[in-house]
């Protein structure tokens, strides 16, 4: 468990997912965020398998196009699919409908299963779309783009500061963790472990607060009075227009399929 904890805390310092450069990297960051958002909206509101599957196919194709490592991407998706698995197990029993089988006297319904599968497909489609369009940009670019999209300053700053100091705080965590290991600490399921880990996280919290105060002081020293400036100009290019047009057409197709299915 400790291994997983350490990995998740250390490996990310705001860089994009590893990938070779592709035409998606050249698209405007704002366009990518908005397109991914609209896509999620349309797909999540889909009520039928055809548009959801089409969305999943499109997302898969974009993942391929963005030159992400397919194997590692799928591994990330599978992490989420474990949550979906519980959904598939539970939903047939909680949704009323035509009986599939009974377990200990509880009936499982076909409708529940199809509902769970539909949700799984939607979730996978949205996640893959986020991987290909949004996760392929560094977190700072994401912050800039959000600022240009008029997301409230405070949220953008929160994101940028988090990205900036996650690494620093995880370094502190690692330092303390190593100091514990140097004194022969091994994680076990006992009172001593819980107490020590409690101390560790308490200390981490205190250090983070103290660092935040020092940063605020440093900002004051340079005349900070409530405004934080971002320096990044973004321009829409013709490739962005083409991509957006095609993407919106595709979304209309999905919406159209939904309405069409609805009337049949």
């Amino acid at each position: 468990m400790s291994q997983g904890l350490e990995h998740s805390l250390t490996s990310w310092s705001g860089q994009a997912l590893k990938h070779q450069t592709s035409w998606i990297d050249n698209l405007d960051a704002r366009i990518r965020i908005v397109c991914a958002g609209l896509f999620a909206f349309v797909v999540v509101l889909s009520q039928f398998f055809v548009p959801a599957l089409l969305g999943l196919l499109c997302a898969l194709w974009l993942v391929k196009a963005s030159q992400l490592n397919i194997k590692r991407t799928l591994r990330r998706v599978i992490a989420m699919d474990f949550f979906m698995l519980t959904l598939i197990v539970i939903l047939p029993f909680t949704t009323p409908g035509d009986m599939m089988f009974t377990l200990f006297g509880f009936p499982a319904s076909w409708q529940g299963l199809s509902h769970a599968l539909l949700i799984t497909i939607k979730a996978n489609a949205v996640l893959l779309m986020l991987f290909s369009l949004v996760a392929t940009m560094p977190a700072t670019t994401l912050g800039y783009a959000l600022a240009h999209l008029k997301v409230p300053d405070k949220l953008v700053h929160l994101l940028l500061f988090m990205v900036r100091y996650l690494e620093v705080i995880s370094q502190e965590y690692k330092k303390m963790r190593r100091a514990m290991q140097a004194r022969a600490f091994v994680m076990r399921t006992n009172r001593h472990t819980w107490k020590s880990i409690g101390y560790l996280f308490g200390m981490l919290l205190i250090r983070s607060v103290e660092r935040a105060e020092r940063i605020a002081d440093a900002m004051k020293c340079r005349g900070f009075c409530g405004r934080y400036y971002l320096n990044n100009d973004m321009k829409i290019k013709s490739a962005d227009v083409v991509f957006t047009t095609l993407f919106v057409f595709f979304l209309f197709l999905l919406i159209g399929l939904n309405i069409h299915d609805f009337y049949h």
Binding site: G14, T140, G143, L160, F161, V163, R164, Y165, V168, R211, R214, I215, D217, A218, M219, R222, G223, F224, C225, R227, Y228, Y229, L230, N231
Partner: peptide, 21 residues
């Protein structure tokens, strides 16, 4: 600790922060 002082994403933004203020 230099990490306390450098809080902007890029170097240029960090250096610019003072003059802008």
């Amino acid at each position: 600790d230099p990490d306390d002082q450098l809080f902007c994403p890029t170097v240029l933004e960090d250096v610019m922060f003072g003059p802008l203020n």
